[in-house]
Amino acid sequence: MKIERYERWFLIAVAVALLLAVAALLATIAGEHAAFPESSERIDPALISSTAPFDQPGVYPRDDGGYDVIMIARTWAFEPAEMELPVGATAHFRIASVDVVHGFKIPDTNANAMIIPGQVTELEVTFDEVGPHSVICHEYCGIQHHIMGGVINVVGGEG
């Protein structure tokens, strides 16, 4: 079967470009610690508000200088919806939904996750920029989906 000479070179060039892209993307994981959200455990949405740690959502300092953020997503709010973190801090989020699927997105950071009933979404976010950051539910979750948001205030100096 005939494959044009130009077409063969074209495909080889495509293959090389793709291999370079794969290498670059793997480097973002190894070098920049860009990581996907994972599920730390499974949980029954009906029992969330009575199960530790979700019975007490909030921000808790960790021994390593970071913070644990325990968060509940429900139609149509995050809990806690507002919090303050020092610049440069790494927050370890654990988020669970009590009802439908929600989203979790903080613009200008790597924070982007789905919150799915039955799973606990776990992700790490480092905040390098001072100022307020929107926390956005970016999955349709019902008629008031657009009011589901929060704010993380990143403050300067040592917090």
């Binding site: 997105k105 613009p107 929107s134 999955e139 349709y140 989906h145 657009h146």
Partner: peptide, 19 residues
């Protein structure tokens, strides 16, 4: 790229004015 969510009644979103 600036963070606009999809599937959202955007102009009424609580965070619209902050971005």
């Amino acid at each position: 790229i600036d963070g606009v969510p999809r599937r959202t009644q955007l102009r009424d979103a609580v965070y619209y004015g902050d971005n």
